[in-house]
Design a protein around this nucleic acid. Sequence first.
DNA 1: GAATGATTTAATAAATTATTTATATAGTGT
DNA 2: ACACTATATAAATAATTTATTAAATCATTC
Lengths: 180, 180
Amino acid sequence: MDIKVENVVASASSGAELDLKRISMELEGAEYVPEKFPGLIYKIKDPKTAMLLFTSGKLVCTGAKSVEMVNEVIFRVMGQLRELGIDVLEKPDVKIQNIVATTDLKTELNLNSIAITLGLERVEYEPEQFPGLVYRVAEPKVVALLFGSGKIVCTGAKVIPDIDLALQQIKKELSEAGLL
Amino acid sequence: MDIKVENVVASASSGAELDLKRISMELEGAEYVPEKFPGLIYKIKDPKTAMLLFTSGKLVCTGAKSVEMVNEVIFRVMGQLRELGIDVLEKPDVKIQNIVATTDLKTELNLNSIAITLGLERVEYEPEQFPGLVYRVAEPKVVALLFGSGKIVCTGAKVIPDIDLALQQIKKELSEAGLL
DNA sequence: GAATGATTTAATAAATTATTTATATAGTGT
DNA sequence: ACACTATATAAATAATTTATTAAATCATTC
């Protein structure tokens, strides 16, 4: 099972309250429009990620392709803030909040059959609204989007192993129901 | 049955990828605003037609009053591109995509009666939204707009004979239902 | 009162944006 | 207590954009 991590979302606390107005002026590329969104948006080009900084000192990092990358990006931004003279932690405690991954079953799926066989209590499928079938796995608690092409998007996991566990469950269930 | 062709839409492939930015600068009257529309818009005054050129080399011609005219216009624009040193085909394969034509039954129509008699499964008529009655012909697959004046607009045909066939069908059906 | 400007229908091209899912963060509004 | 504001990300659909054209009826503008 070839799994590709597409996006990792993490949160952390910088350890110091932040003056977003000032940071937005000194940090190149930072956007801060409090009347639109309370957080400061800092888009990084390489690696292509985005950081959201809040007055409370808490922050969110999105777009990383791995857990290591999230940490690197957050630590790097902490360094930039320290260069601005802000006393934030060098290595705050980073908590992974969500991992989005994709895989390919390498075989076409009949989403209509899956929806009928598993029932509308288990899955959601409204092709006229969205082409993917929403499959919710209870344990580990993740959500998978199945597509007719056999491609799958898995989101909601907080650790990599859970993605594999969930996908194995889905494959097993589809297989036992003769839907693969 | 006097039929007047009002508009012919055709597509073709020039056979070469196009640098729309460059063409927009060298072709007088060409408009190219990719953030608004991906194609280059080239309005021709005589005959009053419009060409849409795309990066892929594919193109669309609208506004011509006949099939011959579409071909002439497309071939002429190909010549202009060749003059710019672009290696496009002299005479690309032109595919007629839609022909819009009008005719006049020379007798008033009671659209309310037609809508009631033929049923809402066959026609659509919402006078407060649009004064014409929408009449869909299955074979040939075209759509006709009938007006109280007896004037008819026929669209969707890819060949001239289909316009006549469709209009004959409509006249026959209205006639047999005593609606003419 | 005359003149525009939608309204509807079909068809093509291709780029973009919307749709859905999860998730933290934190303001405003219902 | 929610929904929405904003961020990223994949998947695969649909819709929007542009241009053209007639018909007739509405609203709006000078």
